[in-house]
Nucleic acid binder design. Sequence first.
DNA 1: CCCCAGGGGTACC
DNA 2: GGTACCCATGGG
Length: 272
Amino acid sequence: MHRRINVSDFDLASTLECGQAFRWQRATDGWFTGIAGGRRMRVRQIGDTLEGNVDPHYFALDVPLAKIAATFPDDDPLRAAVKNHWGLRVLRQEPWETLASFIASSTKQIVQIRQIVAHLARRFGDNDTFPTVDAVARATHQQLVDCKLGFRAKYLLAAAQAIDRGEVRLDRLPAMEYERALEELTKLQGVGEKIAACTLLFSCGHNEAFPIDVWIERSLRRLYFPGRKVTARQLREFTRSHFGPYAGWAQQYLFFQERTRGRQPLPDAIAQ
DNA sequence: CCCCAGGGGTACC
DNA sequence: GGTACCCATGGG
């Protein structure tokens, strides 16, 4: 259903290009097309107007971004990142799609992750939607390898089968305590703390999750501990105590800031 | 804590 | 048309 809605404190391009979702593409005319939650979407933003078949829940338009930002620590690095990418929101994605995509993401760069997910959708999905748990659980290992999953194929297959059998219940993750949910997900082979944190932040409403990958680790060391030796464990402790109840949102701003550092700011929808 | 496998796209020569 | 580089996880 095509519509226009008025939005505030929202930036479509930052939200879709910050690395949290893998199925969106920006056309030269400023429209984004993507497939999420089992359906195709086409969306663009002009000023405070969001146009297209917009799903407000998916884009977390009901979330009061200013109140979230008010919970952030008032430090220079985060203030700069928030200023540069204001309007970036953590999407509400599907847990299975998110978990599977991040299992596929292990030691891959974003371009390759997008390709793997596209292969999976084309081969096992309905009309290029992300394949169901069931569809992946019934795939063969070789079929998944053919989707360029490499050594991750066995992890994705085992995860799909464990979820299909009810051994791991993704639907229970949102209501669990964060630490408990983390334990549950990391039972899966190929799912460590980072991938579990991504899944819990991007699809289960655990806003305190702070995924640490090499980009965010570089960012933290450079911005918060310049010239000091800190272990990975100290960094993890720091993120848990420093960033507050919406640490994951802070992480997205810092992450996107690090990824776009030294580049021209992305052109906004109206400019392109 | 360290070291290593791993694998396809990408940047650079 | 080489070749180094990137990188989460598990296992040693």
